[in-house]
């Protein structure tokens, strides 16, 4: 189809026509490009940039989390320290001193209980009240020649004192041991913990021995008798009196448990 001459003229002349824009048009074009770049957010510039941002955020959060982990441990440690330090220094020191004193006392008790009569001088040398061991108790009985009633009273008093004092001393170390375990685990404190059951046993033994002594109201004077087992004490006493009768020495019939003279008088009287 042939084009109209006017259409042909205008199409040929104006199809490739050019009009140079002004410089202001180029500046406006540049401004529009910058405005477009500003409008386009960082998330629209590409997935790489968005992924980089997300990964950076994760790294920062991970680093913060990792940095927080040691801080929490440190804070826990500090809180423990502060809790232990929160106690007044004097009380802390006193507790430590108590621990030390208690350990010394307990060791002395244990040594006395184990050594027994053999460590008589050592037990006498100790000035602490915890030195009330069976050996000392028996030494007192041996030295003081008093009526049986008074001796039993003394024995009971001593038994009560010895029974009461170790209980107090046991409670104090347990408290201090708990505190020291919470604060810091030291090897010395472990030794204290290991000594506690043994001390309780020794104390029980001491009490039993003292109570048996008080119950029998005996006036044992011979060291051999003390060396004998506790269960055969009565038999030992009877045996000792029989030995005295055999050797012609004075026989304490009360120690034996019966007096033959009294039995004879009763029989004659009947």
């Amino acid at each position: 189809m042939k084009k109209h001459p006017v259409d042909e003229l205008f199409s040929r002349k104006l199809r490739d026509a050019e009009i140079t824009p002004r410089d202001e048009a180029f500046q406006k074009f540049q401004q529009r490009l910058k405005a477009k770049e500003r409008r386009i957010g960082w998330w629209q510039k590409g997935l790489w940039l968005a992924a980089a941002g997300v990964s950076l955020l994760l790294i920062v959060e991970g680093g913060w989390w990792l940095s927080q982990q040691p801080n929490e441990i440190n804070t826990l440690a500090l809180s423990n320290r502060s809790s232990t330090n929160g106690i007044a220094p004097s009380s802390h020191q006193t507790s430590e001193q108590k621990v030390a004193d208690a350990t010394n006392e307990l060791t002395s008790l244990e040594n006395n209980a184990q050594v027994g009569v053999g460590s008589r001088t050592k037990s006498e040398a100790t000035t602490s009240s915890s030195a009330t061991t069976p050996s000392k108790h028996h030494v007192k009985l041996k030295d003081a020649i008093q009526p049986l009633v008074q001796e039993t009273q003394i024995a009971q008093v001593e038994v009560t004192t010895t029974a009461s004092e170790p209980q107090i001393k046991i409670e104090e170390p347990t408290k201090t041991v708990v505190l020291t375990n919470a604060a810091t685990a030291k090897p010395t404190e472990k030794t204290v913990v290991l000594q506690l059951p043994e001390l309780e046993k020794t104390l029980v033994v001491v009490n039993e021995s003292q109570t048996t002594v008080a119950a029998t109201n005996s006036s044992m004077t011979d060291n051999d008798v003390l060396n004998k087992p506790r269960k055969s004490t009565r038999m030992a006493k009877v045996w000792q009196q029989l030995k005295n009768a055999k050797n012609g020495e004075k026989v304490d019939w009360d120690e034996v448990g019966f007096n033959p003279n009294k039995l004879v008088t009763k029989a004659i009287g009947k």
């Binding site: 104006l14 026509a17 050019e18 009009i19 824009p21 048009a25 406006k28 074009f29």
Partner: peptide, 22 residues
Amino acid sequence: SARMLAVCVRYLNNHMEAEDVM
């Protein structure tokens, strides 16, 4: 730009407005 500005001028008959449209 020059060629497209000519196109816009043909339609709009205004040079500045044609630049905006371009």
